[in-house]
């Protein structure tokens, strides 16, 4: 669950900032955990998100290949398999209360992307 991931996070160096794809996702492997990393750019800001890459409904590691968008105020990614929307901030699935993605800390430091696992 979410709390578990937040227990004792350790920051891992993933890649250079230039590997990010604007308004889309890439995937990293950290300690056997697949992590989808998204860059969302709006007129005001640029936001990084890190969530688990496992689609709990489609049962495949594909989340990073989803389309980014918004539902109401929430920034979301749509699973490429069956199109459920997950809030990138909280991991919550908009359509199905009973599933969610894990969320991870992410930061940009000295041109490198770091993720907390």
């Amino acid at each position: 669950m979410q709390a578990q991931a937040a227990l004792a996070p350790r920051w891992h160096d993933i890649c250079a900032e230039s590997e990010l794809v604007e308004n889309s996702g890439i995937c990293a492997l950290v300690e056997d955990q697949q992590i989808a990393i998204f860059t969302v750019i709006t007129q005001e800001s640029r936001q990084l998100y890190a969530v688990s890459n496992w689609d709990p409904i489609g049962k495949a590691n594909v989340i990073y290949r989803g389309i980014i968008g918004s539902v109401g105020d929430a920034t979301v990614v749509a699973s490429p398999l069956y199109k459920e929307h997950y809030c990138l901030e909280t991991g919550r699935c908009i359509e199905k209360d009973e599933v969610s993605l894990l969320t991870f800390g992410i930061q940009l430091r000295d041109g490198r992307i770091l993720v907390a696992v």
Binding site: V21, E22, N23, S24, G58, A60, N61, V62, R65, G66, I67, I68, P80, L81
Partner: peptide
Amino acid sequence: LPLQDTNDTYLGNMQKDG
């Protein structure tokens, strides 16, 4: 690029196992 469905982005149809 970010507008496309995964099928268009990766130029193939995604199957059930990704």
